[in-house]
Amino acid sequence: AEVELRLSHWVPATHPIQTLGIEPWVKSIEEASQGRIHITIFPAQQLGAAPDHYDMARDGIVDLSYTNPGYQAGRFPLYSLVEIPFHMNNAERGAVAMHEWYAPIAKTEMSDVIFCLANPHDPGTIHSKGPIHVPADIKGLNVRPAHATMARFISSLGGAPVQVPAPEAREAIAKGAADAITFPWNSINIFGIDSETKYHLDMPFYISAQLMLMNKDSYAALSEENRKVIDDHCTPEWSGRFSKGWAENEASGKQKMIDAGGHTIYEPTSDEVQLWRDASAPLIDTWKEEAKAKGVDADKMYQDYLEALGRHDAKF
């Protein structure tokens, strides 16, 4: 092919992220470019560790990098708004909203790469060994948080975040190092944690998002017609399409637990939901302070996010 691109991510090649997200996207690019662009996928951290994926795109180690900005706490403070719980309730439509909201912000916050796609996972929730219904139930518990924002939330509720690598999450729960974990639904089954956590809070608690990023030089080196192909695949619509398959796979996890039996899936009352949202309010204040420190109009930026979510029917 005229252009050879390397795409790196950190999950196994068989993961729904690759089979239902990355592969169809790559195929569409190759077809739209009539074979001029060829993309080789390097899964499973073959070209670099998961937390290094942003730098790998920046430094040209790869051309395209599937990155979780949340792996590096504190580095992308504006982006971290999406990690605050109780905002997004649907990944496919939420991806479109997040893309529209973040694309202009990325021009400054991620100025040394090209922002291409947003890929939030299906809203995850809190899975625990004992029942958790309201924020006060977190007090005194050890919780494995999804990201640094969630760790802050757990701490503010009187719980203790326990950071362990994802593959050790099951071990941590089984061995009593953690009493609860925040995870998307099917990941609980995939990682075999379903045998440990029998209680689940049935609400779209939080998301963690991944981004597809591109190296600037690789982008600049493209011919005009090839650049158009890439541009056409870095759109809010594609963010939605990219996110759909994996989200459905994760969402199916809840039904699997119901079918398997032995699980208590608790749907909180609207009063209880309000307790959770109130408890998370300080996170928004902290975010606004950090955003202001970056010199942006934090209130407007926050409103923009809510509007984008509302526009695409993805608002909690």
């Binding site: 670099g48 730098d55 430094d59 180690i61």
Partner: peptide, 17 residues
């Protein structure tokens, strides 16, 4: 395969990791 710049940047991340 990639040129020197990306390759040398491997040294920025990988050993520390």
């Amino acid at each position: 395969i990639t040129g020197w710049k990306p390759a040398l940047n491997l040294l920025a991340q990988s050993p520390v990791r």
